[in-house]
Structures are given as C-alpha cells and as structure tokens.
Amino acid sequence: MTAPAIEAVDVSRTYQLDGVSVPALRGVSLTVAPGDYVALVGPSGSGKSTLMHLLGGLDRPTGGRLAIGGREVGSLSPGELAALRNETIGFVFQAFHLLPRTSAVDNVALPLVYRGVGARQRRERAAAMLGRVGLGHRLDHRPNQLSGGEQQRVAIARALVTDPTVLLADEPTGNLDSVTGAAVLELLERLNAESGVALVMVTHDHEVAARARRRIAMRDGVVVADSADERHDPPVSAGTGRPDTLVPAPSAESRSASGSGPGHPSGGTGGAAGATGRRAGEGPAGDAPAVPADEEAVP
C-alpha cells in the first residue's frame, strides 16, 4: 500500500462570523490514495467546498489532523503551504479562473513561475501540457478567444503542469453545457488513468458522480457515506452505490457519529444542530445558488 496522497483525521473547520462560531466541517476523516477517483457530493452548505479547500491546502483545519503529501498542514506557514500546493495539488475551478489578457500557454505556465522555472522551460512544459489536453493549436489564444470547454481545458492543463499528486476539481463541468462537460470529464478521467494523478471532484451532478470509482457524500459538515467504506464493509449501507442512496435519513446520532468511519449509520441532518451547520456552511462555502439545500441530494 502506498502512502496516502491526503490524509484527514477528524478534521473540523469552524468559522468565526461576527463573533459567532459556525462549524462548516465537524470531524471528517478520509484518505485520498494516489490515483484515486473520488466524487464529493452533497447539498449546498454540506461542507464539501470547505473540505475541498482543506484538501487542497488553501485553508487550514481548526481541529483534527490533515496531512497533504505526508506533510502536516497545521504546522506549515502560509508560505510553506503555498509551496506545498504548488508541488502536490492542482486546482480546477467551476469558473475556470484564467488570467485575462494572458495567453493560454502563459496561463498554464503560471504555477511554474512560482516554482522558479525559467521562461523557456515554462513555455515548453506548458505547451506540451496544452497538447495533452488537445489545445496544442491554441497556445497563444487568450481566454476570451476560447470557448468555455477550451478554457476549462486550459485550466486543467494549468492544474497538471506541475505534475501534482492530487487534482482537485470543484464543479469542473458546472459552467459547461452537457456535451462539452462530458468531454471535459472524459479528459479528466483519461488524465487520471494515464498519469496516476488522484482526481477529487466536487459535483452536484449525479451522473458525473456515478462515474467516479469512489463517492463521498457529505451533509451538514460530516461525511455521511463513503463508497470506499462500503467495499470494505458492505452491510452498513446496503445501497446501490448511487449517490442518492448514500445519504441516509436524519439520525439523532449524527454528531457523535460524525467522521467516525465504518460501522455507523451516520447521518447529519438531524435536528437543530444540522440546521445550524447548514446555514453556517453557506457563508464560507457559498459556491452554489440559493436552492433548497436538500433538493439535489434527496430528489
């Protein structure tokens, strides 16, 4: 067994909003193995964006232990954390986040700038990476000269140009039409298979989530189901593996069960605590439109 790319043990994240503590994550334990293909699902405010930021080293947990690439996140300075992100993590965002007025190749080369790679080598590596995502003919186009799908491919190339161990994709197809989205998804899957980069993808889309080898469902700041656990311990949640069924009914045990792993009928929507958690999560993790939180998870 290789060392986990990311290991989280009882990780929590609490935000201080106007002096009020609001928990966004309440004890999450999971590991991402090299080459994993994980879909992170859950309703808005369930804490999946917060978890995503933690897994990517953009944020630090307020409780628990989080190691990225074997390095303890809590002990790193912001500068060291930035270097760790640069070395081990690639990000793909829903809104692409490409620099305007900057060519595709320069956008892709951006992480290498902070790694101290020289200009010529940067361009070579960025161009090669753009070739791998099928944009070898668009090197000097600027984002506004590219279609949405092409822009997301540029973003993917940027995420992978540093040879990261984990690719974190936050709703990578969310801003794309279904055909383009499917193509981008196929690209991500191909890169995952080819280069062995672990792919962790936040998604609302059940069809997208269904394609992942592993699905983690979140609700109210805790992991309520992890299909990796099912394989080891099938009786727990005798579901079909479809994400819908990964979200159990509200349970009074939700808090004590949070993140404790297999063997628990863990759930997170129970009672007032769940409601608080959900509302809290929307502040810092407000990445979704104001739809009723449960709508997508429990259709």
Partner: peptide, 16 residues
C-alpha cells in the same frame, strides 16, 4: 482579488 486568489492557489507565497 480573484487573480490573487488564483495565484495563491497555484503556489504563490504571500511574499510573491
């Protein structure tokens, strides 16, 4: 701000 956020995400240190 968003550009700064992106640069940080891809590895820019506060000093950079």
């Amino acid at each position: 701000t968003r550009e700064i956020g992106l640069r940080k995400a891809v590895g820019a240190r506060p000093r950079d």
